[in-house]
C-alpha cells in the first residue's frame, strides 16, 4: 500500500459518501445517471468475486464490502425508493449502456492476463469501469445546471483513478515484477474521459460560478 493508492481509495470512498449525502439530504436523485450506478454495481460484483476466496487484508475486504453494498443500495434507492425514484431523470438518462457492457465483455475475452473465469471477469470490470461514467457525463450535459453535490461526486470519482495512475507509476519504479498494464491503460482512458469535465469544473471553481457543461 502506498500513499497514492490510499488517497485514491479514500477519494473513491468520498465520492460515494457525497452521492449518498446528496440522495439522502435532498431525497432526490435528479442529475444522477442510474445507468452509471448500475454499471458500477456490475464493475464491483465482477471485480470482487474473489472476496471470499482471496484474502488480501482486512482493509481490502472491508472496502470491497463497502463499495458493493453502497453501490447496490444506491441502485435500489433509485429504482425502489418511493420518493427518490420520482426525481430520476428517466427521459434524460437514455445512454445505451448495454453496448458498454457488451463491448467490455468482448474486449475482456480478447485481452486478459490469463484465460480463466476470474481473470476475464477482472478484465471485464476494468474495461467497464473505464466507460461507466459515460451515461453520467451525457446526463450532465443534457441536464444543464449541475447541483454542487453532483458535481463534487463526479469530480472525486474522476480524481480517484487519477491517483491510482500515480500509484501504478510508483509501484512500477519500486516493485521488480510489477506489471499492471491492463489496469493502467484502462485507467488512463478512464481519467481522460473526465478531462473536459475537470476543465469546466475548474472554471466554475475559479469564477465561483455554477458548474455548467456545454451541450
Amino acid at each position: 500500500m502506498n500513499i497514492f493508492r490510499f488517497a485514491g481509495d479514500m477519494t473513491h470512498l468520498i465520492s460515494i459518501l457525497v452521492l449518498l449525502l446528496k440522495i439522502y439530504a435532498t431525497k432526490s436523485c435528479s442529475g444522477i445517471s442510474r445507468k452509471t450506478q448500475e454499471l458500477y454495481a456490475l464493475v464491483f460484483l465482477a471485480r470482487y468475486v474473489d472476496i471470499f476466496t482471496e484474502f488480501i487484508s482486512v482493509y481490502n475486504t472491508i472496502m470491497k464490502i463497502v463499495f458493493i453494498a453502497s453501490t447496490l443500495a444506491i441502485v435500489w434507492c433509485m429504482r425502489g425508493h418511493r420518493v427518490v425514484r420520482r426525481s430520476y431523470d428517466k427521459e434524460l438518462d437514455t445512454f445505451r449502456h448495454y453496448f458498454l457492457i457488451a463491448a467490455s465483455l468482448v474486449l475482456a475475452l480478447l485481452v486478459h492476463e490469463k484465460f480463466t473465469f476470474q481473470e476475464i471477469l477482472w478484465a471485464f470490470s476494468i474495461y467497464l469501469e473505464a466507460v461507466a461514467i459515460l451515461p453520467q457525463l451525457v446526463l450532465l450535459q443534457r441536464s444543464g445546471n449541475v447541483d454542487n453535490l453532483t458535481g463534487q461526486y463526479v469530480f472525486f470519482l474522476g480524481a480517484y483513478r487519477g491517483l491510482y495512475i500515480l500509484n501504478w507509476i510508483y509501484r512500477y519504479f519500486t516493485e521488480p515484477h510489477f506489471s499492471r498494464w491492463i489496469a493502467c491503460v484502462s485507467g488512463l482512458v478512464q481519467t481522460a474521459l473526465y478531462a473536459d469535465f475537470f476543465y469546466y469544473y475548474f472554471l466554475s471553481w475559479k469564477n465561483n460560478a455554477k458548474l455548467k457543461l456545454p451541450a
Partner: peptide, 10 residues
C-alpha cells in the same frame, strides 16, 4: 511471478 500479478488493489 504469479504472486506479483495477484489483484491486491481495489
Amino acid at each position: 511471478r504469479w504472486r506479483s500479478n495477484r489483484h491486491d488493489e481495489l
